[in-house]
Simulated scan of single mutants.
Amino acid sequence: MARLVAGVCGLPEGRPPWCPGAVVLAGRGPVVAAEAATGWAVRYRGYDPAHDRGLDLPRDQWEPMRVGTVFDLASVSKLFTALVAVQQVERGRLALDGPVAAHLPAFAPGITVRDLLRHTSGLAPELPFYARRDRADQLALLWAEAAAPTGGPPGGHCYSDLNLIALQLLLEGLTGRPLDALVRDDITAPLGLTSTGYGPLAPQGVAATEDQRRPWAKADRGLLRGAVHDENAWALGGVAGHAGLFSTAQDLAVLCRTLLNGGAYGTTRILGPAAVAALLDPPGLGFAVDQRYFMGELAGRGAAGHTGFTGTSLVLDRATDTFLVLLANTVHPRRRAGGSAPRAAAATRLARAVAAA
């Protein structure tokens, strides 16, 4: 695993590196087997589109990646929204197979809470909330899509940020509490995840993301560090069902252990075993299940997890009681199609190490 950590940033010669820096944490049972950081949390002051390269900060201003570096989780945030939803189901306040329209009347009949969690609602992948800064206008976009989904018929799979944005609104209406409070009070505080929360954050100790500018981005915001990268999450105020959380590898390792332990960590329980099984059993509720493209050889054995656009991911494998957290700043200084080969390679190395143990 140490050899993998040292090489996780790289790609074949002649291509840009996969990321400036990364943190990898792997464990089995109660033991953290490997934890290491490589590369740079902050290296660039911007991006030069004319020469397709990052613009380096002065060398003495580069900040090394550390195992405690905080990352913008991007879509890994969806897991926390899913956990809150399943907590409400477990408490009898929400029905998985109940109609979303019972809570959000603009939704077409037939779309259920389960559909939102499984991405089978038919909602489009995203909408341009970033182009409408007024909340009423943003919600009007969502309600129009919810009334007549354009992503496909309900029941078919279409991965959509809108599912989790809608779930956020449903949960907030159901509980009378904002999503950040639900995540804090019901997940992060009980588990002691002190480095996990929504931004904006002070930049110190946070991995930088993108020099966000058009035409490659959807908004002109400059270099981001501690402010959510996702343009729609930013437009929605930084707390969104699909993105917005920041965290560390250590905090995510605790979350993985909690799920592998059937919802308990030490003396703290956030979910019962049946609720955890509902989240992780195929096809999963909010969690991707057995996705070989980023899970490598861990896939197919009961693995579940998620990736994030900024370069983040976690995988937990119930069959071997192992987990892998890989956090990288792949969009620093600019987003590009880097693929998930390093994620899959890390998962495969872990799977082979467990098999050989």
Score class of each variant (00 low, 15 high):
Leu104Val: 13
Pro273His: 00
His51Asp: 13
Pro178Gln: 01
Gly54Thr: 02
Ala136Glu: 15
Leu164Cys: 03
Pro17Lys: 04
Pro125His: 01
Leu259Thr: 03
Gly122His: 02
Ser77His: 08
Trp216Pro: 00
Leu141Gln: 13
His332Tyr: 10
Leu224Asp: 01
Arg349Asn: 07
Glu297Cys: 09
Ala26Met: 10
Val254Cys: 06
Leu94Thr: 03
Arg336Ile: 07
Arg66Gly: 11
Arg15Ile: 05
Ala33Ser: 14
Ser340Lys: 12
Ala82Glu: 01
Val8Ala: 15
Ala148Ser: 15
Thr310Arg: 04
Trp40Lys: 07
Ala37Pro: 00
Phe107Ala: 12
Ala328Ile: 06
Leu83Gly: 08
Asp115Val: 08
Arg93Ser: 02
Pro215Thr: 01
Asp321Arg: 13
Leu182Met: 10
Val239Lys: 06
Leu11Ser: 14
Glu172Thr: 00
Gly98Leu: 05
Trp216Lys: 10
His229Thr: 02
Gly338Tyr: 11
Ala219Ser: 14
Leu201Asp: 01
Gly286Tyr: 02
Val67Phe: 02
Leu174Val: 07
Gln204Gly: 08
Leu279His: 08
Pro154Ile: 00
Ala136Phe: 12
Leu260Glu: 03
Gly263Asn: 06
Gly98Tyr: 02
Ile165Met: 11
Ser313Ala: 12
Asp180Lys: 07
Ala353Thr: 14
Asp317Trp: 09
Gly54Asn: 03
Arg336Met: 13
Tyr44Met: 09
Val24Glu: 06
Ala274Gly: 07
Val183Met: 02
Trp40Asp: 11
Pro64Thr: 11
Ala106Lys: 12
Gly302Thr: 08
Ser313Tyr: 06
Arg91Pro: 03
Leu285Cys: 06
Pro125Gly: 01
Ala131Asp: 15
Ala95Tyr: 01
Ala288Arg: 15
Val254Pro: 06
Ala353Leu: 15
Ser247Thr: 13
Leu191Met: 09
Leu167Gln: 04
Gly27Gln: 04
Thr258Glu: 05
Thr150Asn: 05
Leu255Pro: 11
Gly152Lys: 00
Leu298Pro: 00
Leu179Ile: 06
Asp72Arg: 01
Ala41Val: 00
Ala41Arg: 04
Phe246Ser: 01
Thr38Ser: 12
Gly10Gln: 13
Thr307Gln: 08
Ala219Cys: 11
Pro203Cys: 13
His242Asn: 11
Ala26Ser: 05
Arg177Asp: 02
Gly68Leu: 08
Leu174Gln: 08
Arg221Asp: 10
Cys19Gln: 02
Arg133Glu: 15
His306Leu: 10
Leu350Trp: 10
Gly266Val: 03
Ala144Asp: 14
Asp186Thr: 15
Arg45Ser: 07
Arg15Phe: 12
Ala303Ile: 03
Val70Trp: 05
Gln250His: 15
Thr258Phe: 07
Gly10Cys: 07
Cys158Ile: 15
Gln61Cys: 13
Phe287Trp: 14
Leu142Glu: 13
Glu297Tyr: 07
Pro200Arg: 04
Leu4Tyr: 12
Pro333Arg: 15
Val86Glu: 14
Val113Cys: 11
Ser121Asn: 06
Val289Asp: 12
Tyr293Val: 12
Val42Thr: 12
Val42Gly: 03
Val315Gly: 10
Val8Tyr: 05
Thr307His: 11
Ala82His: 03
Val228Asn: 01
Leu164His: 07
Val67Trp: 04
Arg133His: 15
Arg114Tyr: 12
Arg118Lys: 05
Gly92Phe: 05
Phe309Lys: 09
Ala22Leu: 00
Gly21Arg: 03
Ala108Gly: 06
Thr120Gln: 00
Ser247Trp: 08
